[in-house]
């Protein structure tokens, strides 16, 4: 059996998760501090890929990166790289579609974060960077990890936009989800079933790890008390 789709899917999901991780945290942090109106608008724009059909996202990506579009032509000229119908084209699709999951979860975590902790660090003379890396981020760890895992799962399962921008070429752009569709379409029910089971196993692991993260719960200081010594 050819395991290329598994390898390709994991590779695409991993790369897009890394991208989403940093972009999502940055966007969540930055948007949370903006004035209400701008925040509302940006929030809609950044969450849109979550509710749009993936084919619509794929359409936009093709309009942007296609070989006869400005960005696509520029990349071809300067780097000699195609941005569509290659395996890494699926990274764009997965990253865009899974980004809102990271962004929203991280933003929720930042919003629930007790701002007084950051204020305390700053009155103690600690730099804003120290405060962010040593206090804010560790306190929001659970939410950010959950967002990362969700984004990874979504990126792994991406089908619609991927099919449009990367297509299905066995051994080159095939991912688990596109392979399942292709095998089923060509009547290879057993082959499709294998990939369905692989996908089920990965999804189960992902969901289990989220559950475990949630059970640990956010670590927060509780001022209430029982005894004094």
């Amino acid at each position: 059996m050819d395991w290329y789709p598994l390898f390709n899917s994991l590779r695409i999901a991993a790369i897009s998760t890394v991208i989403i991780f940093f972009l999502g945290i940055f966007a969540a942090w930055y948007v949370g501090k903006l004035p209400r109106l701008v925040k509302g608008i940006l929030d809609v724009v950044l969450t849109l890929p979550l509710v749009l059909p993936p084919t619509v996202v794929g359409y936009f990506l093709l309009r942007l990166l296609g070989p006869r579009r400005v960005l696509g032509m520029w990349f071809m000229e300067v780097f000699g790289l195609r941005l569509t119908m290659v395996w890494y084209a699926a990274v764009f699709a997965s990253a865009v579609v899974a980004f809102p999951l990271m962004y929203r979860t991280a933003r929720g975590a930042f919003e629930a974060f007790d701002k007084d902790l950051a204020h305390a660090a700053r009155t103690l003379g600690r730099s804003n960077a120290w405060t962010f890396w040593r206090v804010t981020l560790p306190c929001c760890k659970q939410g950010i990890l959950a967002g990362t895992v969700l984004a990874f799962a979504r990126a792994l399962g991406e089908y619609g936009a991927t099919a449009m921008i990367a297509g299905y070429t066995p051994g080159r752009t095939a991912t688990i989800s596109t392979t399942v569709y292709q095998l089923w379409r060509t009547g290879d029910d057993a082959g499709a079933m294998t990939w369905v089971l692989v996908n089920l196993a990965i999804s189960a692991v992902v969901l289990l790890s989220i559950n475990m993260l949630e059970k640990k719960g956010p670590s927060r200081a509780r001022p209430a008390s029982r005894e004094v010594t």
Binding site: D114, D116, L117, H119, A120, A121, R134, V135, P138, C139, K141, S219, R220, A221, P223
Partner: peptide, 10 residues
């Protein structure tokens, strides 16, 4: 000194 003390929980 904050009302809830603001000790870093981590």
């Amino acid at each position: 000194l904050f009302q809830s003390y603001a000790l870093f929980p981590n």
